[in-house]
């Protein structure tokens, strides 16, 4: 029984970290993988999703619907940002990062000015279950299922839908796609919007577990960046296994040495991975299978 209990504890810890990494990095990975743009306003789209979710939920919308509303609003804001700023910077990837950082500063401080330093959140739903005398949050188990669902959904979207085929064609051969009559500008807009919506979804999903502050997006930054760096540009081949490996490292180190070493372990892993596998996991996996 004690063994079962500690195994379950470890699995729970691993699943929780894995879910967090997958959900928080999906939006960043889509935008980076498809467009080559590192979106430093990623955390602010997460914050946007969380705020909209919390407001909608307190206005009486059921939580799942509130979360979807959060994702939708973040996605629309993302499309607007793409139209106004990112579109002008596709040939200057470094400048596009800086621009998104400018947006991040404006968004964080703007929200601070308009809505104050904190906002009332929503409580964590679903209560908890008891396993061997210790209680585990049921909502976090739901989040783990969401992470798997998200990966499955994105896989279907990118590999088995018209949008996905056109999006991948646009990214790989923009001129060719243009010549074939694809509205490449709109594809970029939609892809960026999708990435922002995924960030908003992350915010919505984690809104019930977090304190609503304008800087909450930065909580997600390190983990999502680290996952994308370790994973490389391809979200399925790279980011998902990267999330699994990092979750294993972080959960293990956290269990034995505490939170702090979990995070340091992540950083050390990143530095070692970039030294050994310059293309990230996806570059390596693709290289060996070719």
């Amino acid at each position: 029984m004690a063994l079962f209990q500690s195994v379950f504890g470890m699995l729970y810890q691993f699943g929780d970290t894995f879910a967090f990494l997958v959900i928080s990095c999906a939006g960043l990975a889509v935008i980076f993988g498809m467009m080559g743009v590192i979106n430093l306003a990623h955390g602010e789209f997460i914050m946007c999703g969380a705020y909209v979710t919390a407001s909608a939920a307190r206005a009486g919308l059921p939580l799942p619907l509130a979360i979807l509303t959060g994702a939708l609003v973040a996605g629309l804001v993302g499309m607007l940002v793409e139209r106004l700023v990112i579109r002008h910077l596709y040939h200057r990837p470094l400048d596009s990062i800086i621009a998104t950082w400018g947006i991040s500063l404006i968004a964080t401080q703007g929200v601070l000015i308009v809505l104050g330093s904190t906002m009332q959140g929503v409580g964590t739903p679903l209560g908890s279950i008891d396993v061997g005398g210790r209680s585990y949050s049921l909502y976090r188990l739901v989040l783990m299922a969401c992470a798997l669902g998200l990966l499955g959904g994105l896989y279907v979207l990118f590999y088995h839908s018209r949008f996905g085929v056109i999006a991948r064609a646009t990214i790989q051969k923009p001129q060719m796609a243009h010549a074939l009559g694809v509205n490449t500008g709109r594809m970029y807009g939609l892809t960026f919007g999708l990435g922002a919506a995924l960030a908003g979804l992350a915010g919505g999903l984690y809104a019930p577990t977090m304190t609503m502050v304008p800087t909450m997006g930065s909580t997600f930054m390190v983990e999502s960046f680290v996952t994308v760096v370790v994973g490389g540009a391809d979200i399925f081949v790279g980011a998902a296994p990267a999330a699994a490996i990092l979750a294993l490292i972080k959960a293990g180190l956290t269990a034995w040495y505490g939170q702090l070493f979990g995070q340091i372990g992540l950083l050390v892993t990143v530095i070692l991975v970039i030294r050994i596998l310059p293309g990230g996991l996806s570059g390596w996996l693709k290289g060996t299978t070719r």
């Binding site: 700023v85 800086i98 621009a99 950082w101 400018g102 947006i103 991040s104 500063l105 404006i106 968004a107 401080q109 703007g110 000015i113």
Partner: peptide
């Protein structure tokens, strides 16, 4: 906010 705008 002004810094962010300036950067942009």
């Amino acid at each position: 906010v002004v810094m962010g705008a300036l950067l942009l």
